[in-house]
Write a protein that binds this DNA or RNA. Structure first.
Length: 533
RNA sequence: GGCCCCAUCGUCUAGGGGUUUAGGACGCAGCCCUCUCAAGGCUGAAACACGGGUUCGAAUCCCGUUGGGGCUACCA
C-alpha cells in the first residue's frame, strides 16, 4: 500500500484528535509525525505518553484513511496444529482484529508427500476451538497450480527464471563434494543446461543477480540486510509442477492483498527470497514481522517434527481454549505486568510493540497454572457441560446436573484441568472405587470401626441432609467419642472417597447423599472386619 | 563451515541513560487459614552473560568476546 503514510499524514493535522466524538488529544506537529509513522506499524517507534492506547488510535485512524489491514495464517497440513504455529495464528488474528482488518486462512499443501486432508481438518478444528475466526474462503495452494505455472512461465519468458534439468541426486552429490572441500555450493545459471534433454522433467529456478543488497524491513527487529550473492538460484517450481514454498507464498501474499505477514523467526531467511520473487513479478510486498520462536525446555526449537505438542492434544487433556489463547499470546508478547487477558482485552491491547526479540521457552507448569486460574473463573454450569462427555466416556451414567454442579464447585479449586476434575472426583459418580492402599492401612483400622458405626447412626438422624446439619452430626460423634474433628473426618474421608484427599468432609457427605453415605460406611465397617479376620 | 537472529531471576517477562536497594507472574521455601488436599492471603530466596568503550552517570547506547538458536532442500 504505497503512499499510505502520506495519506495518513494528509489527514492527521495538528489540533484536536477526535475519535467517536471524543477529543482524545491535542496533537502538535511532532506528534502528528510520530503518529503517522506509527500507523505504518513500526513498533520500534516509541509511543509518546499521550498515546498509550496505540492500537485503538491506529484502528480509528485506519478507518479514517481506509488502509486495509489483511493478515493471514498459512499452515501446511503436515501435522496437527502445534503450539508454535497456533501462536503465530493468534498474533496475526489479533493484529488484524485490533486494527479492524481481515484475517485470512491459506492452506499450504504443496508438499504432496506429506500433506494430508485429515491434518487440514484438524488444524481448522483447532483454530475454531481457539476462537480464531477467519474471513472469506479458505485458499488452498494445491488448487492454484495453474496460476503458479503461468507465473513461472512468465518469468522464464522474461528471462528472470530458467529451466533446470539437473536431478536432485546430482545436486546432492555436488553439495557433498563442495562440503568436503569446505566450500559452499550455490546453484548458478551456468549449470542450467546440464543434462538438458527434450521432454526431460525440469524444475524452474529464479535467476538471482549476485552482489545486490536486499534489505528487509522487519517490524519486530528492524532492518536486516542480506547479500544476494549468498542466495543461490533457488527453485520456484518443482519438477512435479508444484510451486515451492517461497514462490507460492510470495505469489499468494500479493494476490490475496496481504498487508502484514507475522510469522516465525525461522522464516527470516525466506524474506529476501520472497522479496526477490515479488520484485521479479512486479508484485506488492507485504510488511514483515518475524516473531521469535518457542523453544522446548532443552532450548531447542519446539516443532511438530520433533513431536511437539499440539493444540488438539491440550484440548484432549482438558485445557480450556481461553487459557491456551492466553498462555500462548503471553509467550513472547507482553503488556506491562498483566498476565490474564480476555480475548476482547487482547484485541484492544495487542500491538507488535509488545513482541519481544528473544525466543521463549515453553513452560508447561505456568500453562497448567493459568488453565487452573481460568477453571476457577468459569461458571459452574459451563464447566459441568464440558465435563459430562468426559464422565460418560468412562462408561459412567450421566449424573444429574444438580449433583454435577456441586461437584464442580468443589473440585475446580483443586484441579487444573477438566480431565483432572473428573479423574479426582470419580467417587462422586460411582460406588465402584478402590481404597487407596496406604490410606486404608492407616485409617480403615479396628478402632475406627466404632466411629463409623456412630457416624452412621448420627447421620441417619439428621433430617435435612445439608452441610450445616451434617456438621451437627459430626459434632455429636465428637462429643460421644471425645475426639477432635480431624480424628473423625479423615477416616470418614477414606471410607467415603477411598482417599485422604477430597473436598471438605461435610460437602462430600452432602453431595453423596444419605443413602450412599450409609452404604459406604457399612462397606468400610465390613472391610475392617474382613481385614481383622 | 557460511549466512542470519538473540542475550534481565530456573522459566515467562517489566524496564529503553539518573525515578532501581532492578518490578510482576509461574515454580520453589516459610507462615497464616484449616477436617485432608487444594484454593486464597502474607513473607522470603532468586537475574541485568563477560570485556572494553561513550557519558558526570549504563541493565538501558556502541564495539568485541562468549554462549544459545535458526537457516543452509525440487520441506514448509
Amino acid at each position: 500500500m504505497p503512499g499510505a503514510d502520506n495519506r495518513i499524514r494528509g489527514l492527521l493535522r495538528p489540533g484536536p484528535l477526535q475519535v467517536r466524538g471524543q477529543i482524545l488529544s491535542q496533537l502538535n506537529w511532532e506528534e502528528v509525525n510520530i503518529f503517522s509513522w506509527q500507523l505504518l506499524y513500526n513498533p520500534l517507534a516509541r509511543t509518546p505518553k499521550p498515546f498509550a492506547g496505540i492500537s485503538f488510535f491506529a484502528a480509528s485512524a485506519c478507518k479514517i484513511v481506509s488502509v486495509k489491514i489483511v493478515t493471514r495464517f498459512a499452515p501446511s497440513p503436515t501435522g496437527a496444529l502445534h503450539v508454535g504455529a497456533a501462536r503465530t495464528a493468534i498474533f496475526n488474528w489479533l493484529f488484524s482484529a485490533s486494527l479492524g482488518g481481515d484475517f485470512l486462512l491459506r492452506i499450504e499443501d504443496t508438499d504432496r508427500a506429506r500433506s494430508e486432508e485429515k491434518f487440514e481438518r484438524q488444524i481448522i478444528e483447532s483454530l475454531k476451538w481457539l476462537g480464531l475466526e477467519w474471513q472469506g474462503e479458505i485458499v488452498r495452494q494445491s488448487e492454484r497450480l495453474d496460476t503458479y505455472g503461468r507465473l513461472a512461465e512468465r518469468l522464464i519468458d522474461e528471462d528472470k527464471a530458467y529451466r533446470c534439468y539437473v536431478t536432485t541426486e546430482e545436486l546432492g552429490r555436488r553439495r557433498e563434494e563442495a562440503k568436503e572441500k569446505g566450500e559452499v555450493f550455490r546453484y548458478r545459471r551456468e549449470w542450467s543446461q546440464l543434462g538438458a534433454a527434450p521432454g526431460k522433467p525440469y524444475a524452474v529456478r529464479l535467476s538471482v543477480p549476485p552482489g545486490e543488497k536486499i534489505s528487509v524491513e522487519d517490524l519486530v527487529r528492524g532492518g536486516i540486510v542480506f547479500n544476494s550473492s549468498e542466495i543461490e538460484d533457488f527453485v520456484i517450481l518443482k519438477a512435479d509442477g508444484f510451486p515451492t514454498y517461497n514462490f507460492a507464498a510470495a505469489v499468494d501474499d500479493a494476490q490475496m492483498d496481504i498487508s502484514h505477514v507475522i510469522r516465525g523467526d525461522d522464516h527470516i531467511i525466506n524474506a529476501p527470497r520472497q522479496i526477490l520473487i515479488a520484485e521479479a513479478l512486479g508484485f506488492s510486498k507485504p510488511k514483515l514481522a518475524h516473531v521469535p520462536m518457542i523453544l522446548g525446555a532443552d532450548g531447542k526449537k519446539l516443532s511438530k517434527r520433533h513431536g511437539a505438542e499440539s493444540v488438539t492434544e491440550y484440548r484432549l487433556r482438558g485445557y480450556l481454549p481461553e487459557a491456551v489463547l492466553n498462555y500462548l499470546v503471553r509467550l513472547g508478547w507482553s503488556f506491562g505486568d498483566q498476565e490474564i487477558f480476555t480475548a476482547q482485552e487482547l484485541i484492544e491491547k495487542f500491538s507488535l510493540k509488545g513482541i519481544g526479540k528473544s525466543p521463549s521457552v515453553f513452560d508447561p507448569q505456568k500453562f497448567l497454572w493459568l488453565n487452573g486460574k481460568y477453571l476457577r473463573d468459569l461458571p459452574e454450569e459451563s464447566i459441568s457441560e464440558k465435563i459430562v462427555p468426559l464422565i460418560t466416556q468412562k462408561g459412567l451414567p450421566r449424573p444429574s446436573s444438580e449433583r454435577l454442579c456441586k461437584v464442580v464447585a468443589q473440585m475446580r479449586e483443586r484441579s487444573e484441568t477438566l480431565n483432572a476434575i473428573v479423574d479426582q472426583s470419580l467417587y462422586f459418580f460411582t460406588d465402584d472405587f478402590e481404597y487407596d492402599e496406604k490410606a486404608a492401612e492407616k485409617f480403615l483400622v479396628e478402632r475406627n470401626g466404632e466411629i463409623f458405626t456412630l457416624l452412621a447412626e448420627e447421620l441417619s438422624n439428621v433430617e435435612d441432609f445439608s452441610h450445616d446439619n451434617i456438621h451437627g452430626g459430626f459434632e455429636r460423634v465428637m462429643q460421644r467419642t471425645g475426639l477432635g474433628l480431624g480424628k473423625i473426618a479423615q477416616p470418614a474421608r477414606v471410607a467415603l472417597t477411598g482417599s485422604t484427599k477430597s473436598p471438605g468432609i461435610f460437602d462430600v457427605v452432602e453431595i453423596l447423599g444419605r443413602d450412599t453415605v450409609a452404604l459406604r460406611l457399612a462397606r468400610a465397617i465390613d472391610f475392617i472386619s474382613s481385614r481383622i479376620a
